[in-house]
Amino acid sequence: MTSTTAGVATEVRAGVATEVRAGVTAEVRAGAAVGATVPALLELAGLRVDHGAITALKGIDLTVRQGEVVALLGANGAGKTTALRTISGLLRPAAGEVRFGGERIDGVPAHHVVGLGIGHSPEGRRVFADMSVLENLQMGAYRFGRAAPEDLDRVFGLFPRLAERRRQIAGTLSGGEQQMLAIGRALMGRPELLLLDEPSMGLAPIIVAQLFDIIGEINAQGTTVLLVEQNAAQALRLADRGYVLETGEIRMSGPAAELLHDPRIREAYLGESAA
């Protein structure tokens, strides 16, 4: 039970009071039974990541519990993408730990992390532009050798547009379709935890709203989600809890509903004056 203990310890540092409220709010939210009793799926503890001489993350603590949607918010350059890339094994931390299901995974190379059950839809979508939609999805199932028909059906069920365009070369898709493909591709690896890096980037509000509905559906189907966003309003409406990252440090954390109404958030990220 070391993982639970460590999880609690992390939360104590983040603030006990916040923790208790997180449990209550989550239960109020659409019956999503996410409370302090649910084990932590992902834990970052004192995570520090350097880019050369620059420290991008200055020792952050973050917990994602089984079944949650957790939003990681912050401005450009705050370190959000760095956090996701470190979880995926693309970057090595200088200090601290990444634990997934209680096991340390920092230092595990990226091509093994996906096999542990972490799917990553990267910043800028990064679809394989010269491959077809279907080939992209098959790449998502690379670790299984062959894409299971039920996984393809699931992705096509979530994103009917991709089913219509399965033979189309991915580079010719619209931005929204490419984002759907990037998420669908990550789902093909049957992740327990889905990392989404700015799915709303560069997309029209109506597309963003649709996309976030689908992310909610993916979560309802049982996939835990860590969502990195600059679009704080959208992200917090979907999320159970949120963290706010500023220049490599966690500045605020708590239940999404509270963050959404916090005047500091409204001012900094929702473009409202603190009147």
């Binding site: 995926s88 693309l90 190379p109 990226a110 091509h111 093994h112 996906v114 096999g115 990553h120 990267p122 990064r126 394989f128 532009a129 010269d130 491959m131 080939e135 098959q138 790449m139 998502g140 690379y142 670790r143 050798g145 062959r146 591709r185 690896g189």
Partner: peptide, 24 residues
């Protein structure tokens, strides 16, 4: 083949290929 898919993915985007589980 699977190896061929890995080669093509790697040629297009090595980092994303590794996120798919390709041992580059």
């Amino acid at each position: 083949t699977r190896l061929g898919a890995g080669i093509r993915a790697l040629a297009q985007d090595p980092e994303t290929a590794s996120l798919m589980g390709v041992d580059t």
